[in-house]
Write a protein that binds this DNA or RNA. Structure first.
Lengths: 201, 201
DNA sequence: CACAAAATCGACTAATAGTCGAAAAAATAT
DNA sequence: ATATTTTTTCGACTATTAGTCGATTTTGTG
């Protein structure tokens, strides 16, 4: 009863690495079991299907990222930095992510989508709390916070995830963020440098 | 030399329907050739691979949609309606789209992504032109128009494509759009009803 | 009509996710 | 200790899939 859980975790970790480095579609079950040194039947003893395994892998990674994000939320950074930090937390750990990060390549669309969906669901409450904090401090001023946070997440991901973005993209993104939350014009300007750094690795 | 082109178009149309109704991943080459009544070899005489065929199908649908969008752009609708109309043009024709529209189901992530990417590339210039028109008319006021248009497209798609959106989502989206383009507060309010209609059918 | 080019055929391959019944290992009861 | 049940592991097997290839037919052309 204990051995099983350990094996499952081991398989999840192996799959996590492989999915992230070469993509979900490009990783075969045969490769996973070879890497793990087990037989086909053992794999399917622990997972219903490859896709169900993907769900569990995503659950695992989102769990870790949410952990980090919660730490950022309960830190004493200023609100804008918290928001940025939470958004930064919800991406693959740099050690795991290869330069050719599979999450962003076209062929890995299914995994990317599933991750994005879970990520949005998980990040909205945390970011909303940070934004509410900003409202209480008087640096933000807006209604419908979760909906605004959702837009921020969607744009942030779609715009910056693939690394193909210009300085103007960043400028407009920040301008949008300020207006979205009713922040003072230019008050998020200083974030600009941070985004560049973050994304470039 | 003429027969070939006709056959290819026929295959593209069949695939277009099938991809849209049951999804790209869930449509096998065998099913396509059965529907078309041809042999495997014939299929691969016209297409390098299934994925390459997908590219051509997408090119075909985007082409049609861009055509409609250009008509909207050159119409005498007001600017905001033009923008909305162009965005509406870039989605599967309602006759083809099943209730269970394949474009939006999880499993069709690859196709969805490819369509989105091509769509954004194609729609940005048209929407930018409409927005510039708005600027000239003094109802918009902003810089970096294409980058702002890109954000509008991204959010519009990600938010409304799956049909899972609330009234607040629409409200915030419109508010964002107004601020993004520097329009007068409330000036796009009247669009609200239209979006609801558009998406529900 | 002869020849070449274009189009079509379908059996075959390789890779893949998933199945299943049997065997081994571990835990539990007697 | 031994028998029995439960958990875990095994790997050969199936079905489906994208894609290949040489042979054959159809079509256009000198």
């Amino acid at each position: 009863m204990k051995k099983g859980e350990k094996r499952k975790l081991e398989l999840l970790k192996i799959a996590y690495k492989m999915f992230l480095s070469k993509g979900y579609e490009n990783t075969s079950v045969d490769e996973i079991i070879e890497e793990a040194g087990i037989a086909k039947g053992t794999y399917y003893y622990y997972f219903e299907s490859k896709e169900q395994m993907l769900e569990e892998v995503i659950e695992m990674m989102i769990g870790q990222e949410a952990e980090m994000a919660r730490q950022v939320l309960s830190s004493n950074l200023d609100v804008v930095q918290k928001i940025l930090g939470i958004m930064a937390a919800f991406r693959p750990a740099p050690e795991e992510a290869t330069i050719e990060n599979a999450l962003h390549q076209q062929e890995n669309a299914l995994m990317h989508n599933k991750v994005l969906k879970r990520l949005v669901a998980e990040a909205i409450p945390l970011l909303s709390e940070a934004a509410e904090e900003g409202i209480r401090q008087g640096i933000f001023n807006c209604d419908h916070v979760p909906e605004r946070v959702k837009i921020l997440l969607i744009v942030g991901n779609e715009l910056f995830d693939d690394g193909n973005f210009t300085e103007n993209d960043v400028t407009v993104f920040i301008d949008m963020a300020e207006k979205l939350f009713g922040a003072k014009p230019g008050s998020m300007e200083y974030v600009k440098g941070l985004i560049g750094q973050m994304e470039m690795q």
